Simulated scan of single mutants.
Amino acid sequence: MSETSEKINLLGLSPSKMEAFFAELGEKKFRAQQMLKWIHQFGEADFEKMTNMGKGLRAKLAEISEIRLPEVVYEDISADGTRKWVMRMPGGSSIETVYIPEKDRGTLCVSSQIGCSLDCSFCSTGKQGFNRDLTVAEIIGQVYVAAMSFHAPGERRERKITNVVMMGMGEPLLNFDNVVDAMQLMMDDNAYGLSKRRVTISTSGVVPMLDKLGDVIDVSLAVSLHAPNDALRDQLVPLNRKYPIKELIAATNRYLNKLADRRKATIEYTMIENVNDSLEHAQELSELMKQVPCKINLIPFNPFPNSGYKRPSNNRVYRFRDYLLSQNHIVTIRSTRGDDIDAACGQLVGRVDDRTRRSAKYINAVQLDSNQ
């Protein structure tokens, strides 16, 4: 193992683990708070510039630890201000992170896995297959990259990111421990200081882990439902065959009941033309959601190659929404953002990885030709 790989990456230490790290060095608890601020609020990765720590401690830190940041291989900014990054992980695979600015907030969509094992039929990420879970450093590193993109290293960051949603690549509850540690960092006052109401975890319905989640953290919850009955959801979200809708709704209510405040779940419903977008589906969904304190987020499908699905017309989307509104549900339609730089989640990674492979083939071909 190389010297670099043996070092502890402090970027990925949760507040409690950072305290334990400094305790092992014989240092007091406040050192952990200082380090969290240096990394996550000032974006500083050079121990020598952490001047409120003694010279001996800085030397010791450099010897046994590091602050290893993600490798950004692609970044683009949409005309509407949406930012997208592709970050290459150790092993060569990439993940995608998206920042969406709005009038009163800035929302960062964060990935939890490389690829996804759930294979939802309408998701381009699932079609890439599953590679591995992301580490805490790789998850929080996405927040770091986005937060620090708005200012120079060493300057205290501006609060551009007001919300984080674990809705990127992967199923967060299948990478439970690392996602929880990363969310603890997002909410810690010495790191990103986000409100528990403004950190949201999205799940397709891993019921046992959803129950476990409610015992350790109280972030906001989004449920990827996408169908109002088991027969249809079995086709769209194969996980439903293991944890059907009735079990998912019961687990959602159990989670909400553990929260100290009266938060609602967000029900995510991707609308696909002539699949789940009829008035009959809206009627089924309405009856189903009367069982859950929730707001419903309708998401017109983002087409991707070979999906076999189409985006519904605006008329069908509005008819679906209007029926739900008539039944006194809280309903929003997710607007399309950044479509000039990408479409559905996961597509950007595929294109960048493909360009990277083509580039490598080109370089190898040139080298082979020059050697002949």
Rank of each mutant, 00 (worst) to 15 (best):
L134E: 10
T107A: 14
D119V: 13
I140N: 09
F304V: 02
A79N: 09
K212C: 08
I330S: 06
Y255V: 14
V73R: 07
M148P: 01
I245T: 07
M167P: 10
E102A: 14
A137N: 10
S78C: 12
M183H: 07
E63V: 03
V331H: 04
I299A: 09
D188T: 03
A20M: 06
D119E: 15
S278I: 03
K103R: 14
I64V: 14
A231T: 15
T252E: 02
S65L: 01
A365G: 11
L368C: 00
L210Y: 03
K264P: 02
A231P: 01
H281P: 01
L36F: 02
N229Q: 13
N175A: 12
I201G: 03
L368K: 11
V292F: 04
D218S: 08
Q367L: 13
I217M: 15
T200N: 09
A45R: 11
S14W: 08
Q142E: 11
A137K: 11
S78L: 09
I95E: 05
F122P: 13
Y192R: 10
G115L: 06
S370V: 04
F47M: 06
N52P: 02
E24D: 15
L298R: 08
K127Y: 03
S93N: 14
E273N: 08
K160C: 04
P303D: 02
I95A: 04
L288R: 08
N314P: 00
T51S: 03
K28I: 13
F301L: 05
S370W: 04
Q113W: 00
K196P: 09
N302E: 07
G43A: 00
D211H: 15
L285S: 03
V223L: 15
C109W: 01
I64R: 07
I272A: 06
T97W: 00
E247H: 06
R198V: 00
V179M: 10
S16T: 14
S117Y: 00
A365Q: 14
F176L: 12
M89P: 10
I249A: 05
V145T: 15
N240Q: 12
N302Q: 10
S313R: 13
S224G: 03
A222N: 10
Q113Y: 00
Y309K: 09
A23N: 06
T107V: 13
T356M: 15
E280M: 05
Q235E: 15
S307C: 12
G56D: 14
E3A: 14
R321K: 15
T336W: 03
K258V: 06
F42M: 07
L288T: 02
M289N: 03
E3C: 00
M183E: 12
I114L: 10
L108T: 11
V206R: 01
G106M: 12
I333Y: 10
F22W: 07
L288S: 04
L288C: 04
F320H: 05
M1R: 09
Y318N: 02
I114D: 00
F320N: 09
N276F: 02
T356C: 01
